[in-house]
Structure formats: structure tokens, C-alpha cells
Amino acid sequence: MIDKILWPLVSLGGMGLVFGAGLAFASKKFAIETDPKVEEIREVLPGANCGGCGYPGCDGFAAAAAAGEAPVSGCPVGGAAVAEKIAAILGVSSPTVEPKVARVRCQGDCNNAVNKYEYDGIQDCVAAAMLADGPKGCKYGCLGLGTCVRACPFDAIHINENGIAVVDRDKCTACGKCVVACPKKLIELIPRSSQVQVLCISQDKGKDVRANCKVGCIGCQICVKACQFDAIDFKNNLAKINYDKCVNCMVCAEKCPTKAIFADFANRKAASIDPDKCIGCTLCKKACKFDAIEGERKEKHVVLQDKCTGCGQCAVKCPTKAITMA
């Protein structure tokens, strides 16, 4: 009885052993030398395989980065921290990258915008957008059926109680999946530091915008005139902020008659001058575009808090670093 079990066991086990040893030898003999950097880079990547870098998953990006084809800062999810690690592995200096965040450029929720028909079809923005540009009166508006929500691998975008998509800044990694998924091209990657955004992409004439939405950009160009930094590009009846020039002074948002420009007023900064360091050079006074700094030459200067917009230009100019933004 026992040999009936034993012989198959021994013979097959022995064969397995011989073949295994042979393969082990062959794998040494035919070993392929791969770039160890690829493995190392793959280790430091987040491993979300979201494809935000434009390569097929983290493995693809690791191979491309090791070959020098992809920039070290190519991973939008990992951001600066990962870029630094990859740069260290490759022995190159990592360029500082401005971290980004996705933003849905529409505030036309059920309180602000009107619908032109009742949509009762497939609950998906792409499907709805095919029916006469969707149920929203404004053909540019967020349909709120959650195509972006399903595209997000990080659970960072949701439809709020008023029916439009909102990005969760804390969870967003700027991978860009939602940007691609949105049939209305409403979502944009903006610098994380930006606190002012035009939340409307309607290129309709002001009258038509007003008819459909309370908070749309009507093309009045008040913001363009209000901006002291030439940071608003006006094109096709629509204001657009140039994030390279914008200093987050939020004046445009204050002036906007329809509140189509969003500004995070809670985080608005204000300048304050340390009297011990101020030497009365008047450079800050000249730099201020809002007449918010008072003081004569050789005297201590003070900031008029009601006029200061927190643009920070004075702090840049101050030779003694006496101005702090808080």
C-alpha cells in the first residue's frame, strides 16, 4: 500500500527536482540584465497605476523615467516628494514643480441655473450631453451625473447636494482623469496655491448667460479693468485668469457683479510691517497698487488694513524683509 504512494511521489518529486535545478541553472545562464534603476523608481512611485503621467501605469513610467524619456516630475500623484526621490535615484537635480489641483469651473447648481428639459435617461454625463447638449439651460454647465466621480481613482470628486461636481482638495492628486472624462471640458488643473478662479466657461453673450444662470460670466470686463496685474485674459465673452500673473489679490472677485469669480476670502492675506525693521525707504509704498501703505520718507510705514488686498507685492520689494504676509 505504502509503496503505491511512495513510488509516484519519489519519481515525480525527483523529476521535479531535476527540472527545477536545470531551470535554476538556465535562469543564471540566460539572466537578462535589466536596469536596476527601473526597479528603484518603481519602488518610490505611488503605485496607483492611474495613467496620469501618460504612460501605461507606474511600470511604464518607471521604465521611461529611467531611460530619460519621461521627466522626473512626471508623476502628478506623487508630486514634488516623488520627483525628488526619482531625481536622487537618477542623480539629476529635480526641478521644483508647482503642485496642482483639479477644479470644476461651474457654479450653476440647481439654485443658480435653469434646466431646459427634464432628463430621465442613462445617468451619465456623456449620454446626457448627447441629447441637445444636456438638460442644463447653459450648454457649458456641469450636468452633475457623475462621470468624473466614476473616473476618479482617489475618491476626490463628488456631486454636491445641489447637483454639481466639486473637487475635494485634500484628496485630489491632479492625475487628470476627471479632466479627460468630463464631456463638457469643465475641469481644469490649476496651481494649488491659486485662490482665485473664474468658475464659468460660458462663451455666450452676457444676455444669454443671464437667462440661464445667476452666477455665469457675462463678459462685462469689470474684472479686467479691476485687475492691477494684467492677469485676466478676456476672450470669447469670457474672463480667464492667467495663473502665472495672478497674485491672489482677489480684487476681481470683489468686483465681479455675478460672483462668477471665486476667491477664497477666508484665506485672504494682509501685509503687516515690523516697525523695528522698517527703515522708511518708501519702496513698499511705491510698489502698492492699492494705496494701502502710509508713511513718509525716513519714517515708519504702516499698512492700512481696510485697503490691503494681500497681493504681497510690498513684501517682495522690501529690502529689510520687514513685511510679513499673514
Partner: peptide, 29 residues
């Protein structure tokens, strides 16, 4: 010799699997 012809399929698959692994290595190289 061991009288275990009934193990034919498994034994043959073992041989083939090992060979294929070997061929895979050679081709990859």
C-alpha cells in the same frame, strides 16, 4: 519500471512545463 503509467499525464505536463520555461528564457535573452 515503477508501474505508475497512470501518472503519465502529470509527468508529461511536468516535462513540457519545464521545457517551455527554458524556451521562454532563451527567447527572452
Amino acid at each position: 519500471p515503477f508501474g505508475i503509467e497512470y501518472m503519465q499525464t502529470i509527468a508529461f505536463i511536468l516535462v513540457i512545463a519545464a521545457l517551455v520555461q527554458f524556451v521562454e528564457m532563451v527567447i527572452q535573452k
